[in-house]
Design a protein around this nucleic acid. Structure first.
Lengths: 116, 116
DNA sequence: CAGTATCCAAAGGGATACTG
DNA sequence: CAGTATCCCTTTGGATACTG
């Protein structure tokens, strides 16, 4: 029991990470954002194809939450049948750095667990 | 149905993000990593205090998964009673950039949803 | 196409008590 | 201190069918 006991100086950073994860919670949210991010605009069925394993029910639910948090916008185009486009909002675009870092890390990780 | 249909060029990045999230899944994993990351070494009960709302059962479970994925190491110190220290492995440290980005984003996000 | 509705199984996860 | 074990309710989420 010595000086490795709680150094209060870092509580702020840990809470900040927690705040971020509060918005990005859910099994699929980050993958959905990355799909929209890399294509700049994306339709419902496109995202369904981009994200391996997601169901339409879950996609619908998580898109709603992302829209509520102002990270993405939803635009209905008046085609027949209708088309819906999802885009990152200006605020959502502030996540691009994180998405890019995750993609970089994921590629390195894949190298490591597969071929080396 | 035009040129906004799937541009195959980005599938790789989306899969990479997916691969990363495969390791970082679970409600608590990223918060746990950030706790260990910012203190460089951390004990079980410390992390329990750092991460708001987590239970010992969940902490135990997710620590095991992180250890299995070689992101953290677990060292038992021969004190009375015993002390266990968790640290990031060299591989786990490659996540530091992501953690820092999330902390930055979380702070900005908090500013936005609270006082502005 | 872009969802919604319903059913239901499985996993998540909190509370509490217990152990070395 | 650092967990494990158990109980049990809640949430997740897949499959399928349906709608404007």
């Amino acid at each position: 029991m010595a000086d490795y006991v709680c150094v209060p100086g870092h509580k702020k950073e840990i809470m900040a990470v927690h705040d971020a994860m509060d918005v990005l919670n859910g099994k699929w949210k980050i993958s959905i954002i990355s799909s929209i991010c890399y294509y700049s605009e994306r339709r419902f069925s496109d995202i369904l194809n981009d994200v391996p394993g997601i169901s339409n029910k879950m996609l619908s639910k998580e898109l709603k939450e992302l829209e509520l948090n102002k990270l993405i916008s939803r635009t209905v185009l008046d085609t027949q049948p209708i088309t819906v486009q999802y885009k990152l909002t200006e605020y959502g675009k502030t996540l691009q750095t994180i998405i890019n870092n995750l993609a970089d890390w994921g590629m390195e990780h894949r190298k490591m667990i597969t071929g080396k």
